[in-house]
C-alpha cells in the first residue's frame, strides 16, 4: 500500500452520502429542537430530583437518631434567567449588568439574538457580538462538562475541572483554558445555570469578580442510592495525574464503603467558609454523582454536583485513596 495518506482518507469518505435528503430542514429542525430540549430537560430533572429526594429521605430515616445535617439538593427544574433592577438573576447567580452594556432584545435584528430562556447582554457599540457578549442560560440538558480527559500512556485519565468559589459561596466549574481564550464557559451545577463569556480572558474575569451568589445547595454530599462503579483520580505527590493515580472499583462491598464514607461526612461547608479555588490541586470522584475534591493546603473539601459540600479530613482522603487501590508516591 503506497497511497499517500490524504488519498486514503479522501477515498474513505468519497462514497459517503449524507443521510438527510433535506439538510436545510434538518438544520432548522435541530435549531428548533435545541429550544424545545430545555422544556424536556426540566421534566426529566423534576423526576430525578424527586428520586434523589426520596433517597435522601430514606437515608435520613436510617439515621434518625443521629444529628446529621441535611443532604444538599439541587433544584428540581432549571431556573428561568431574568433581569431584576439591572442584575441578571438565575438560580443563585446575581450578575450586575456592567456599565456600557445592555440586554440584547429578542427580535431586534441583533447579530446574535438570545435564545429562549436565556438572558444575553452585549457591550454597546461593539462590532462583533461573538467577542463582546455574555449569555446566561439554564443548563439545557442534564449534560455539562465536569472533567477533562487526559491521555496517559496506556489509558485515559479523568481529571477534575478547575473549581471556583464565587462570591457568596456558590461553586462553579470552568474549562481548562478558562479566562485565557476568547470564550469561557462557567457552569453552576447547583443552580443548573451556565454562563458563556464571549469576551477576552481578563474582561471575563473582571465580570466574574462582580458576580455574587446566594447558594442553596449546601448540605451533606448527595449521592445516588445505587452506584454500580466508581472512579477516583487524584494527583500524585508532584501534582501530576497518571494512570497510577487513578482507580476504579466495581465490587459492591468496596463501593458501599466509599459511599458510606462520603455520606457520613458531616462537616458541611457553609457558603461563607467555602474555599475551593482553581489553583488548588483537586481530585475527581465519579460515583454517578461527580464529586470534586479540593486538596489545597488550607482547603480540603468535597463538592457534589448533585448537591452538598463538606470538609474532608486527611484520614478520609487517605481512606478513599486506599479503597480505590491508589498508591500516592
Amino acid at each position: 500500500m503506497t497511497q499517500p495518506l490524504r488519498e486514503l482518507l479522501d477515498d474513505a469518505v468519497a462514497g459517503v452520502e449524507p443521510g438527510s435528503r433535506d439538510p436545510v430542514a434538518s438544520v432548522m429542525g435541530r435549531h428548533r429542537a435545541a429550544r424545545r430540549r430545555r422544556v424536556v430537560a426540566g421534566a426529566v430533572a423534576c423526576v430525578l430530583a424527586v428520586a434523589a429526594a426520596g433517597g435522601a429521605l430514606a437515608a435520613s430515616r436510617h439515621t434518625v437518631n443521629r444529628p446529621l445535617p441535611p443532604v444538599g439538593v439541587v433544584p428540581a427544574e432549571p431556573p428561568t434567567p431574568r433581569v431584576v433592577d439591572g442584575v441578571i438573576v438565575a438560580g443563585a447567580l446575581r450578575l450586575p449588568i456592567p456599565d456600557g452594556w445592555r440586554v440584547t432584545a429578542r427580535g431586534s435584528g441583533e447579530q446574535c439574538p438570545p435564545w429562549d430562556n436565556e438572558v444575553m447582554i452585549h457591550r454597546v457599540g461593539a462590532a462583533d457580538c461573538s467577542t463582546s457578549s455574555i449569555r446566561v442560560s439554564a443548563v439545557r440538558t442534564n449534560a455539562y462538562p465536569v472533567g477533562s480527559i487526559l491521555e496517559a500512556p496506556g489509558d485515559d485519565v479523568f481529571t477534575p475541572l478547575p473549581l471556583f468559589t464565587l462570591r457568596g459561596g456558590e461553586p462553579a466549574l470552568v474549562g481548562e483554558h478558562a479566562f485565557t481564550t476568547s470564550q469561557t464557559t462557567m457552569v453552576l451545577p447547583w443552580s443548573r445555570v451556565e454562563v458563556d463569556f464571549y469576551l477576552d480572558g481578563p474582561a471575563s474575569r473582571a465580570i466574574v469578580d462582580t458576580i455574587t451568589t446566594e447558594p442553596t445547595g449546601s448540605g451533606r454530599l448527595n449521592l445516588p442510592a445505587s452506584v454500580r462503579s466508581a472512579d477516583f483520580t487524584r494527583p500524585d505527590a508532584s501534582g501530576k495525574f497518571t494512570l497510577a493515580s487513578h482507580g476504579r472499583i466495581t465490587d459492591a462491598a468496596t463501593i458501599g464503603k466509599v459511599t458510606s464514607l462520603l455520606r457520613d461526612q458531616r462537616k458541611v461547608v457553609s457558603p461563607e467558609d467555602a474555599c475551593a479555588a482553581p489553583d488548588d490541586p483537586g481530585a475527581l470522584l465519579i460515583a454517578d454523582a461527580f464529586i470534586v475534591v479540593t486538596l489545597g493546603e488550607d482547603c480540603q473539601e468535597a463538592f457534589s454536583d448533585q448537591g452538598g459540600r463538606v470538609k474532608l479530613s486527611d484520614s478520609a482522603v487517605r481512606e478513599l485513596t486506599r479503597l480505590f487501590g491508589i498508591e500516592v508516591r
Binding site: 440538558t141 442534564n142 449534560a143 455539562y144 462538562p145 465536569v146 472533567g147 477533562s148 480527559i149 479523568f158 474549562g175 481548562e176 462503579s229 472512579d231 476504579r248 465519579i286 454517578d288 461527580f290 454536583d305
Partner: peptide, 9 residues
Amino acid sequence: KRLWRREVP
C-alpha cells in the same frame, strides 16, 4: 477533551 456529566466511564 471533556468528560461530560452524562458519561459514565
